[in-house]
Design a protein around this nucleic acid. Structure first.
Lengths: 357, 357
DNA sequence: TTATTTTGTGCAATCGATTGCATTTATTTG
DNA sequence: CAAATAAATGCAATCGATTGCACAAAATAA
């Protein structure tokens, strides 16, 4: 009698799909009068289970609308199939492209992506690291915050051998996979282009030098000048946080200084745009009076007037590659790995802001 | 003898921080010679445990670098403190702003955010829904894909009363919280503005009408015309997927048609931009020959020439609000809730593309 | 001092899937 | 047909934290 009651309730539940109770492998086992282990193995297509039994179980599971409890599985297997990605700012074209690439690759490989943004703050980055760690992500992809100068918070991962892949902004101190853009070449190309266009006094508005990317762009700039036999005028090199207001001030300082430049290689497109807007407002002609090149190929740089010459970075591809390297590491934990630093090619896009007619 | 060995190993492990073995509440319990339950309660600051014991346990846990295994906790409590957000395209300013807002609010409230992008595809959206469901997210924030016309895949959530909040693109069929922009008012304002500027034959390039937002914008457009006593010319209304190439074609069709318009209210900024570029290439002057208004206030619309008049949508705030509503629902599951449809105010931003001198 | 209440801890089951090892069943071989 | 091998399945422990209930200890009341 009691047994009938239970079966009745169970049947009721399977019919009425909006029940609260989840179906588990034990429910299936009970109904089919086999053990939960067999059910588990069958659902995972374990060849130890006969094809017939597997089919029977899978069909039944499907009929019941069974969904595995991933959390229970995670607990047992010590895997979460989740990776974390940390970016300075989600809402920035380059970074959201990278995220998009990561997400595309990850979802294809059966991983979830948890995103977090550091707002370029060290403290936020630290708390994110703790949170991702506590959530037992299988691996982390990160581009470090502008503010971050030490990286002890990331040792959470390295200590437990949780794979870590850096992209774009990678610290020298940590030995792991890195996907970077060839910032040196980018800086060189941008500067060389300005030189080729006949500009002579080329300034550079750079970002904070604790970020390797800005160091490299700066070095590329310097070497291009050197190779062309031009002198490096340190008064034409500024370091800033490359955000709008600050960038405008920096540009004003340059343009009104005694050693007034006739071109400017800006550390990013935002700065290039600020500079162009400043020029428009002050009757300075771009590219006639001053040539401008940016960095990153933000969507707007193509469509402003004049359009901005810039260095195109393959964000989406970087995300994909980073994710590929990460998952490879996650899934071959035993094998020793040679860490590599992949340098993605970037590309000079010549537009109106730097081409004298 | 055996016991000493075990203790020795344990001490070794706690000293050597880069060990693989995780510390659990049982380890702490054993060391402190109390029960695991007490440790668990102490770490959760349960007042049932005396202050003295709590302090002792917490200090010890800190010293050992203990981190709770969230997965085990999730399994037991049936909560994950994770919410999913599904957007058509991550790499799009409006959506990444919303994500940013969601992330900001969620991380403050102790939740993780899993992101996924549907690429505006129905199939992808469906598989995302299954994946989020299987991963036992506590709630979902979603803006539906252009392709999606039925919403049975979302009943996964509604059936199990997993809270769901829609933003921007929300289906009428599902009764839950919705955060939308006042698309009707936006369409009305945009059109009214063009009328006020003296334009007479105002076209509209709309998106697919299975999305409510485009319906509403269209209705706003029509009503504005009606209220101004202008006729609605159906040949001046086109429906398209609002992507670049398609939009350009649509605009060409309009401008070369017999009933050539003198203004165009475009369904989004991308379309507005495509139109402007087309005009530039064909010697048509904006705003003199044709006035143009877009929608969304993409970053580029401010900086192109002419700058694009548009409707500004508060993406970040929408994300925050959506997340707030979602978490409120998650945490008050028992209470019956009155679902609300919040209409966020939007704002007409008048720029160069629609103002005749 | 004893009875009663309050406070603090422990026991043991639970969440749901996985997996090494034991056991049963089917198949092959001598 | 018995023995040996292979194939299929089950048992029970495990992952680590949580929690209802029982119980012991301490504090209070009678």
């Amino acid at each position: 009698m009691e047994k009938f009651k239970i079966i009745f309730i169970f049947v009721l539940q399977t019919i009425c799909m909006d029940n609260k109770k989840e179906i588990t492998i034990h429910d299936i086992a009970r109904e089919l009068d086999i053990s939960a282990s067999t059910v588990s193995r069958a659902l995972n297509n374990n060849p130890k289970i006969s094809l017939k039994t597997r089919k029977k179980i899978q069909d039944f599971a499907l009929k019941l609308g069974y969904r595995p409890n991933i959390i229970a599985s995670n607990l047992r297997t010590q895997r979460t199939f989740t990776i974390g990605i940390v970016v300075p700012l989600i809402n920035r074209h380059f970074f959201s492209s990278v995220i998009s690439g990561v997400e595309a690759y990850a979802s294809e490989a059966g991983y979830n992506v948890i995103i977090a943004q550091s707002n370029d703050q060290y403290d936020k980055e630290t708390s994110i690291a703790h949170s991702l760690y506590s959530n037992r992500v299988d691996g982390v992809i990160i581009s470090i915050a502008m503010e971050s100068e030490d990286f002890t918070h990331l040792s959470l991962f390295t200590n437990k051998s949780i794979p870590l892949v850096f992209f774009d902004r990678a610290p020298k101190e940590i030995y792991t996979h890195k996907i970077i853009v060839d910032d040196y070449a980018g800086g060189y190309k941008a500067t060389k282009h300005l030189i080729d266009q006949g500009y002579k006094k080329i300034a550079h508005i750079s970002g904070p030098l604790n970020l390797q990317i800005y160091k490299d762009r700066l070095q590329g700039y310097k070497d291009a000048l050197k190779d062309a036999g031009l002198v490096i005028d340190e008064t034409l090199i500024l370091h800033n946080r490359l955000i709008r207001e600050v960038a405008t001030n920096a540009f004003r300082k340059l343009i009104t200084s005694p050693s007034k430049p006739d071109a400017c290689f800006c550390g990013n497109d935002t700065t290039a745009l600020s500079s162009i807007i400043y020029c428009k407002e002050n009757g300075i002609k771009v590219p006639e009076d001053i040539g401008i090149v940016g960095f990153s190929n933000e969507p707007f740089s193509e469509v402003v007037t004049p359009s901005i010459s810039t260095i195109k970075q393959p964000g989406f591809e970087m995300g994909q590659t980073a994710c590929e390297l990460l998952i490879e590491q996650i899934e071959n934990k035993s094998n020793p790995i040679d860490f590599q630093t992949l340098t993605m090619p970037n590309e000079l896009i010549v537009r109106g802001s730097s081409v004298r007619k």
